[in-house]
Amino acid sequence: MKKNVFTFFLGLGALIFSAQLSAQDNPVSIGFKAGTSLSKYRLSGNMEGFNSKMNIGGSVGGFIKYDLSRNFALQSGVDLYYRTSKLETITDKTSNKIKSFGVEIPLYGIVQGEIGSGKAFIGAGPYIGYGIMTKSDGVNLFKNSSAINRPTMNRFDYGVGAIIGYDFDKNWQINASYQFGLADLHKAKGGAMKNNGASLGLAYKF
Rank of each mutant, 00 (worst) to 15 (best):
I163D: 10
G49P: 04
S100F: 09
S199H: 05
V78A: 12
L12F: 04
T84D: 12
S199T: 12
I98A: 11
A203I: 09
K119T: 14
Q75N: 10
G190D: 05
Y81S: 14
L15G: 08
E48H: 05
Q75A: 15
M54K: 14
S76K: 04
L15M: 12
G190A: 02
F142C: 08
D157M: 03
A124W: 03
N196C: 11
A14P: 02
G113R: 01
D92I: 02
M193F: 13
S136V: 07
S136N: 08
D92N: 15
G159M: 01
D157P: 05
Y82N: 13
K194P: 00
H186I: 00
Q112W: 03
N4Q: 14
L74I: 06
Y41K: 06
R150V: 04
L141V: 04
V28H: 03
F8M: 08
A23Q: 11
A147K: 12
G77V: 06
S117H: 12
K2M: 11
F206T: 00
Q24L: 08
G165E: 00
T91Q: 14
K65Q: 13
K65D: 10
M47Q: 11
K33G: 14
G57S: 01
K40Y: 07
M193H: 10
G31F: 05
L15K: 04
I64Y: 04
M54F: 15
N195A: 11
M153R: 05
K135C: 08
G118Q: 00
Y158G: 08
R42N: 14
W172P: 07
I56P: 02
A198S: 11
G31M: 06
A188I: 05
